[in-house]
Write a protein that binds this DNA or RNA. Structure first.
Lengths: 233, 233
DNA sequence: GGCAATCCTTGATCTGCCGCAAAGCGGCAG
DNA sequence: CTGCCGCTTTGCGGCAGATCAAGGATTGCC
């Protein structure tokens, strides 16, 4: 019995299009790996030597300028695919935000396997197209939205993404009204293209306006979703 | 003889992985279409009903906020692929920047054809992955670079992308030092997340510093590439 | 429990870009 | 040639968010 048989993302990750024989073959070239929060799997500019499926936890994709300004260009959740198949180098670092469990493949092995299994490439294509849509939507936020709109949009997005990851309330995942952020204030700034101080000020202001509540450092509670949506623009 | 036989992007577009029988089949479901500068092929929020290959010209992909702020999320060049296969709606408008010639397919036809031709999907996957890399790099620019860095980066990118489109100097395309911008100042602002005035001021300043020259409205000449690269950060 | 390290908040000041307004420039029609 | 129209440039405040600087809250470790 391969590890895939008990894998929690077996039916949602790119593996979902494969039959049991194919899964067994894929299982042969992959291996499980644990990452601690803060540990990196890939560094910006590295040779692209590995790709992976996320089984558990959250990771960030980030780039930076030469003088140290960082930007988080993506966040991945369980069942998402990470790494750059069919390419020589990786343009961004991949770092665990929480403790994470991933299923890694040597890129060369994966590329070969993918070439032989169109169903897998099809899944990967769909995922990549969806990710591109999401990334382009984020560009609008980065360049045209103000600080309040950015933070409001971020909180709403977290409420939705964490729902998908956490609770499967009878089929359709429902946005959470209370959750723990997997990000520090600094990291929220890196996602939104803001400084830590601006993020803090915006969140405090939303708390004062009773749109949200902030029971502890990482915890957020959405008190007035309609108002938050209005703020998101 | 199908239109594909004389197509100038036959060997660079996603069609390049197909044999002559497959090309003939694809040719059957596609048709050529001319767009004038400013004409739109797809509007934001539309049902995703068509996809296309770009044969000639340049087009922009753009989104906007409810209150009218626009952001260009991508620019496509000859041999690029546009539209959203395998998805219900399109998240951005597609508008011709110059007169353009495209090869359009009904999305349903294209989806079916792609499903039957893994080589095509493979090409499409590679292109989508590359586009995602480029988009993520652009996110860093939008959120972390200042006006001077943005404009410098933009001019360098144009010098490279136009070279690929224009002159094939014996295999390797060489960045151009003099070219005509396919964008108005307003559109440059929309790409960079700046206002038209800021773009104009930056370009004038670079002209004064003799890093570039501006012989006419749309023309740009790079005088000191090293300095421009330093400005881009 | 006490201490250090880290993260977060708050205040004060500064600056780069925006937004408005007016003038300059070039193309085009008549 | 002349006048109009759209695009671009330039000047001038104003403000959102960056930057600098303290101080407060949590967490972890001995």
């Amino acid at each position: 019995m391969s590890a895939c048989d008990t894998c929690v993302v077996r039916n949602t990750a790119i593996c979902s299009g494969l039959d049991s024989t194919e899964i067994a073959a894929l299982s042969n070239i992959g291996r499980r790996r644990w990452l601690e929060a803060g540990e990196s799997l890939v560094w910006e500019g590295d040779q692209s030597v590995l790709v992976a499926n996320v089984i558990e936890g959250m990771l960030k994709l980030s780039t930076g300028t030469a003088d140290g300004r960082e930007q988080i260009v993506g966040v991945v959740y369980p069942s998402d695919f990470i790494g750059r198949p069919f390419g020589a180098t990786t343009d961004h670092s991949i770092t665990a935000l929480t403790a994470a469990h991933v299923c890694v493949f040597a890129r060369a092995d994966f590329d070969r396997f993918a070439g032989e299994h169109p169903a897998l490439e099809h899944k990967l294509l769909q995922r990549t197209l969806a990710e591109l849509d999401r990334t382009r939507k984020w560009m609008l936020l980065l360049s045209r939205k103000n600080a309040e709109e950015k933070v409001a949009t971020f909180l709403l997005e977290m409420s939705e993404r964490l729902a998908i990851a956490d609770c499967d309330s009878g089929g359709q995942p429902v946005p959470l009204d209370a959750f723990d952020l997997p990000f520090s204030r600094q990291q929220i700034g890196d996602v939104l293209g803001l400084t830590i101080e601006t993020v803090s000020r915006q969140m405090t202001a939303m708390g004062r306006a009773e749109v949200i509540a902030l029971p502890s450092r990482r915890a957020v509670e959405i008190r007035d979703r309609a108002a938050l949506e209005a703020m998101a623009g």
